[in-house]
Design a protein around this nucleic acid. Structure first.
Lengths: 340, 340
DNA sequence: GAACGGAATGTAAGCGCTTACACTATTCTC
DNA sequence: GAGAATAGTGTAAGCGCTTACATTCCGTTC
């Protein structure tokens, strides 16, 4: 067992190497500015002492952290996992570190987390969706911290976004559903309050209905948290509707899996008795039986591009233009073609 | 659009409130030491200026960050998600912030992440498993940073652990499998190199075999990354074994789901043609058809207790004793009882 | 009402680093 | 080979906060 030595500082290294602290600092941050002989001597001292720069001190002196913060609504399910993983990989490749926090879909907590990440000196922030208190954007602007909204694409926003057209994608999926002969459609939506993605998907469905001369207001909709169990429960309720829906569309795959479970519990088979659709195309969608018809979202690509775009802005290289990614409808077993 | 004001500092607040910086600092950190009238004045100034303490500066001055770092092998699947979520909730309740990093199951990256979290001033660290370079533990000890290893229970370790008996749990599950009449057992294991949980589970299977007079070395074992696709592939390979296994046990549920997919692709039905077992009891295990027989791990409890234990150590309140949680075998549809 | 003591607040010294600027050694120019 | 340009290194001033210690204030006590 070792004694408790003091944590070595830049000063210690400088003394050990017989140079000034400035030189040590330069060796670490811009090695090309130090002649090789000196640099070697310093590096040996760094090794020998097991020196690691104190992050707080470095931040204070340099005003840069090479840290990007991300706040996601939840870590519990896989919706954001893949995109975030890609985000972090790209960040890492570019020499940045990721700080993750989760907000449990609660704006208050999200604000807290934003402040905390800002206080920690995040050079930039990744947020999910774009619908939040303008005061928050104002706060970030006043501190000149770039923000990128992902999982949405809003070309008209003054903030950059990297994502896809939630509304259009859902419209497209609903069109397919209608093409397949379904007329009694029900929707299990996520909570739309404070969640622009959920709200846009709901609107997308309405768009499609209207375009096909169907009554958009007659559609039974239940809003419920993104959890399997609540999806199952909503499904049971919706199946009581009159007329009974021939398809239950869901705001995301987690809800769809819940609906699937609900169906099984009610002794209904999918898609023979009722069709189910999801959204996101997370791994889950292809794991369950039947496989779920859904909208594929290029999560990894979104994460990667979000990282690139954000870093470009942070380093004042990019123009911060929004990027639109293409989603695509994935027809799978859970949707029955009634016209066939 | 706002001009770019300077970010307010403690000094600004002090000036605005007509007090010294020390008083402002006290208002923020130990309000009871400031008389109410003064405190109110200060708080109003804080609000008015939208002041947020600079984290780096605070760390440097106070040597405490109220930050706990956690490094998990992966964020991509749900293995750690639930436990981590509970960990973070408990941390938050106790006034700590969580910093998460992921290592992609690579020791080198994990070391990098550890150093980065230490440099960021983490007051304590949560690591998964206990099998790592002793130099790393030495490094942390020299900086007196408490570490807690979770997902394992090692009463003899000099470091605290919070987890369960991976080996014993697998032994227990294997015993059930044997009790059900299975004699031709195969295993899809995670990569055991540098992963003590995976290694312990493998040993647990061997224990059970030996205890039942079966040849532990004859068991076909494939080690593969924790991914669905690699599970499916390993399954296909294992089913070529002679004699053909009546059950394929898997190192975790992700692999089991992969095996299930492999079976489906081969046109085999589970459990009629072959049984499959998993480990962890993540949500996935009950979502797929058939539901997977697995070992239930109390993830949320583990996360919560890990947080409590770690904070107790950080605050020098606890003795840092290891905590063992009970896992339990969950018999579900994917395991066939051959004796029935 | 002087002397005392405890509570409230102020003063100022760092915490470990980066970097502008100053300085010295080296190389180049003619 | 003198002078200028350049490269390499050192000096020291902060960055924004906490906290030990000093000071002031105010209510008690005798």
């Amino acid at each position: 067992m070792s004694e408790l030595r003091d944590v070595p500082t830049l000063d210690d290294v400088a003394r050990a190497a017989g140079v000034s602290t400035a030189t040590v600092s330069r060796c670490l941050n811009s090695p090309e500015r130090v002649v090789e002989k000196t640099r070697n001597r310093v590096m040996i001292a760094v090794e020998a002492l097991g020196y690691t720069p104190n992050f707080g001190a470095r931040v204070m002196a340099a005003k840069r952290t090479f840290t990007i913060g991300a706040i996601i609504p939840t870590m519990e399910n896989a919706i954001f996992a893949r995109g975030l993983q890609a985000f972090q990989e790209e960040l890492h490749a570019r020499g940045y570190t990721l700080l993750v926090a989760s907000s449990a879909y609660q704006p208050k907590i999200e604000e807290e987390q934003i402040r905390s990440l800002v206080a920690r000196g995040a050079d930039g922030l990744l947020l999910i969706g774009h619908d939040r208190d303008p005061a928050m954007y104002e706060y970030l602007r006043s501190r000149s911290i770039p923000v990128l909204s992902a999982w949405v694409y809003l070309p008209d926003s003054d903030q950059p976004t990297v994502g896809f057209d939630n509304r259009g994608s859902m419209r497209e999926l609903a069109q397919k559903v209608i093409d397949f002969g379904h007329r009694h459609i029900a929707l299990i939506s996520g909570i739309t309050q404070g969640n622009d993605r959920a709200a846009a998907r709901l609107e997308g469905l309405r768009d499609a209905l209207r375009e096909n001369g169907l009554d958009a207001d007659a559609v039974p909709v239940i809003e419920t948290p993104y959890e399997i169990e609540s999806g199952a429960q909503a499904f049971r309720t919706l199946m009581q509707s009159d007329p009974r829906p021939s398809v239950v569309m869901c705001g995301n795959d987690v809800l769809a899996v819940g609906a699937l479970r609900g169906a099984r519990e009610m002794g209904l088979s999918v898609p023979e008795d009722v069709s189910i659709t999801g959204f996101d195309d997370i791994e889950l969608a292809r794991i369950v039986t039947p496989q779920i018809t859904t909208v594929h979202v290029p999560h990894r690509e979104m994460g990667r591009i979000a990282a690139q775009t954000l870093i470009d802005i942070v380093e004042k290289r990019g123009n911060g233009a929004s990027v639109e990614l293409k989603s695509s409808v994935q027809i799978r077993e859970s949707l029955r073609d009634l016209t066939a």
